[in-house]
């Protein structure tokens, strides 16, 4: 092997490098955000450590919390009713703080398949599901899933029967949405913890379905 680098690039020229974060200029809004944050700290509205802790808390949220809520709804019909009526209160029963922005849980049934988008920006139930994936924020997903939802779902490997209603929720305003998927067949003997492992982030956005464990 003549190229001991394991990759090829013309020698005698500068080595290509991965750009650092600082290599692209700050946008107007990034500068504004930094300036406002620094002002609020200078004025004593919050401390740098409080700011850091809040960011750390938001970054630590993950779809596992939503998955526990879904698994409980699968095994406890009364909990499911409470979840559909008041998602934050039901999540609190499991020790999950879903925040103050109201979340609406929409239930998949044999007749209805729900999918979530925010066409205006990237509204997402972050405290229940963690930060949204990059594709959720992409213009392609946001513009296409309201226009040709079945084609978009098919690209995620999800085929919805032709006689099912595909219901796309565009979270344009005050609510955030979580999909309650249908419990897969063949899971009758599974524990709540085992069920929660079947519930992925994408199931709760509605672009895929929980795995059937017999597959």
């Amino acid at each position: 092997m003549s190229d001991s680098h394991g990759h090829s690039h013309p020698h005698g020229q500068p080595h290509p490098f991965q750009p650092d974060i600082e290599d692209s200029a700050l946008t107007h809004h990034q500068l504004l955000q930094l300036a406002v944050g620094e002002l609020l700290m200078e004025k004593g509205i919050f401390t740098g450590d409080e700011f850091r802790r809040t960011l750390e808390d938001i970054d630590s949220r993950n779809p596992g919390d939503g998955a526990r809520v879904v698994a409980r709804a699968w095994v406890d019909a009364e909990f499911k009713k409470r979840l559909l009526a008041d998602t934050a209160a039901a999540a609190a029963e499991l020790g999950v703080d879903a925040g103050t922005i109201p979340i609406m849980t929409v239930e998949n049934t044999p007749q209805i398949h729900n999918a979530i988008v925010c066409t205006l920006c990237s509204c997402y139930p972050r405290l229940l599901l963690g930060l949204p994936p990059d594709w959720y924020k992409s213009r392609a997903y946001r513009s296409r899933v309201v226009r040709e939802p079945r084609a978009v779902l098919a690209e995620f490997g999800t085929t919805i029967p032709e006689d099912t209603e595909v219901r796309v929720h565009d979270s344009t305003a005050e609510l955030r949405y979580m999909v309650l998927p249908m419990r897969p067949e063949g899971t009758e003997g599974m524990s709540e913890d085992e069920l929660a492992k079947l519930v992925t982030r994408d199931c709760m956005v509605g672009v895929t379905l929980p795995d059937n464990p017999s597959n």
Partner: peptide, 22 residues
């Protein structure tokens, strides 16, 4: 109804959009 939003909607007629509006 999707077919009311997009005249050339490719899916079946029961597909819908639900949107928050002031």
């Amino acid at each position: 109804r999707q077919v009311d939003v997009w005249p050339d909607y490719a899916g079946p007629p029961q597909d819908t959009l639900q949107v928050e509006v002031y």
